[in-house]
Nucleic acid binder design. Sequence first.
DNA 1: GAGCACTGC
Length: 900
Amino acid sequence: MNTNKRERYESDSSSDSDNQERKKDLKERDEFAKRLREKDKEKTRKVTEKSDKKILEEVQKRAKLSDDKDAVERLRIESRRTYLAKRKEDQLLLLERKIADEVQLFASEKLTTQEKRKHEYDKKILELARQHDAAAEITKIQRYYIPSEEQTEEYVEVDEREKAPGSEQNKWEEERMGSASLRFGAKDANKRNKSKEYDLLVDGLEIDFVKTLTHAGDKSEFEDVEPELTEKEKRKLSIEETRKSLPIFPFREDLLEAIRDHQVLIIEGETGSGKTTQVPQYLHEAGFTKDGKKVGCTQPRRVAAMSVAARVAEEMNVKLGSEVGYSIRFEDCTSEKTIIKYMTDGMLLREFLGEPDLASYSVIIIDEAHERTLHTDILFGLVKDIARFRPDLKLLISSATLDAQKFSDFFDEAPVFRIPGRRFPVDIYYTKSPEADYVDACVVTILQIHITQKLGDILVFLPGQEEIEQCQELLQDRQRKLGSHIQELLIRPIYANLPTDMQAQVFEPTPPGARKVVLATNIAETSITIDNIIYVIDPGYCKQNSFNPRTGMESLVVVPISQASANQRAGRSGRVAAGKCFRLFTAWAFSNELEENTIPEIQRVHLGNVVLMLKSLGINDIMHFDYLDPPSSEALIIALEQLYALGALNHLGELTRLGRRMAEFPLDPMMSRALLASEKYKCSEEMLSICAMLSVNSSVFFRPKDKAVHADTARKRFFTYGGDHLSLLGIYKQWSETEFSKQWCTENYIQYRSMVRARDVRDQLENLMERVEVEVKSCDGDHVAMRKAITSGYFYHTAKLSKGGNYRTIKGNQTVMIHPNSSLFEETPRCLLYHELVLTTKEYMRQVIEIDASWLLEVAPHYYKPKDVDETGNMGKKMPKQVGKSSAELTRNYAKMNIN
DNA sequence: GAGCACTGC
């Protein structure tokens, strides 16, 4: 804990307080924090036992997915050919960008004579080269999208016009597209004497597309810095040569100079520029890792942190985990020698708890900042703050093109350093009119592409599993009707909940002469990369979790994507060759109906955990924390109220001893409160399993469509007296008794993947229990103890049975129902506790246990008063005595059913 | 009688 900071934030409140209890609690809290620090100091960081070989194997396994030799060989050769040809162009382009950057970045700086001479020399070279090429072939320059004045103006014009009253979409569309309209599909095909196939295919259902400007996506990707080369060719190039061939290389000196001159620098880098792997190495070579200081680089995803670290270790010819390491949840692959450390953004946030000034770092790089994950957004405020009292600390914020200015403004006008990337152009096509049924439109478009366009795989973005399955069925149906009239079309679905072996099929090479069409959710937008995609079909929708902080209700809704997201999706087609993106919406809709950017996560989620973490970092004024985009004050107040009710904050809004311990757990505050309450009820052993199981959200059960009945009976076999939390405990217990068997999972229709995750979470939580000084004990199946512990954390997630036989939440008086998958679905206990509220077809409580209302007085006397609970242990006075079943009745029922 | 976007600690 940073004492300076603590004093700074708390000085206002400490003077007016004469509350002895509060002072005692704060003292205990600080003593506890001190003990934690000492523990951390003692704990020598052990060098990872995971061997380099194992990690490299893993990385290679991922790389292998892109190694589809046979099918893509032709593409590779073609790519290679174009690569060599454009290599020269790239160099010129780099030079051009460099000159432009120098002009912009150092316009105000005084240049030395030598620098000036170099600059002039560069300019001259460029001029000569351009003159030479102009005579031969100009078009090659178009390989990369350089936003021209013309194009920008056109868009501005559109926007302006739309602001004017009476403007009409159609009119605009006509004017905008005019003769540039490009039609392909059935009509063109007919001209080429393929009418027979078309009669069968679409009955005039083809979709008209219009082509607008060509451009590239704007998202960075860490892997495949040189997608044009095959693995074999890559190996031929020495590591040094490869490094020198990266677009970032010519900027090395300028970049380092800019970093020396400025404390904060925004790096605007495109795909394949090599910034993620190279910048930390440059910093190391330039001496930023002297005096035992580290260069830290954050990534939004675990796989990225791992694979980039492995790559850099290879380039530096060191063992992964020694000088170069990575740190992700469940896996710390670093040692005392580590000087370049890749990590997930959430991991750096955790490190703040133990080292609030990040003293061991000389540079912090926040990569993929434009993705605006919750963790990254919090990091912005924190690193900006510590940069003020640590002038030696350098901050690099790496972002995609569009957001660089926003970051620059936030970090007190920090300069922007631009690095070009390597990517292929993507032609964007829009529909002429809006599509009502996007699944059907996808199917039509897939077949249009398949018949009229040259070979190359198709990637389709759909909102969810349901749409993917629907699309797959439709497509198979059409395919069957067409029979041998069309070439082979392989349909491959992918989404996060798909079993791993089926996910892997997406990466299998396409046989020669065939075409693969991948039906994917947003998982293919950033998380996974499928190679050899030439065509992207984008209906423009995705599913988003919407959370209502007032009611606590969650729901998944299909919403239009943002422009940034659409561009990211389009970019997925230009990775191996020039691509085409078919947007199933109009160009008008793109510029006028889609938001520019996706709403950042911090404005969409429950902030309980975030606020607790900030509080434990000594930041007391949560409302005025320096957010890049602040969450609503309502969301913050709700989070503060919740933390107060849980006892994590006192009446002055200060963190309590309990709050300090809660902050150690990577859990929702309610859950960490429940887990800590298990100390009192001596059931920590059981609560650890329950919390771990609850953390793997609703993906425990496997329910294939064709075996739904079997899966349901299997699930019901786990029903346990008391409620769903206890059923989950039973599942974990039984699984651990089988030595964590995979076969047991398969037999019981349980997802092995989820169980392994639950085990990882449980192990971590168990270690943290020791850290916060809780002895882990078992209550030997005392379900009352367990349910009381749960109630200690979730006391306002309760509902009571009303007169009409419905449940109403105690807080908010909302009508809610027990989820049909619950073991209590056919029971009607008078008082219930739920884990979460979800809005699907109805308002449901998911994961419920039966509780005794009198427990509420016991676990939350500050929140419930005796008048809230009547003498029979029921809630409220209006409660009719005969409605609902008592605990005793339920127990009898279960006994009759012979369950537990 | 229902349904599962995606990350991360």
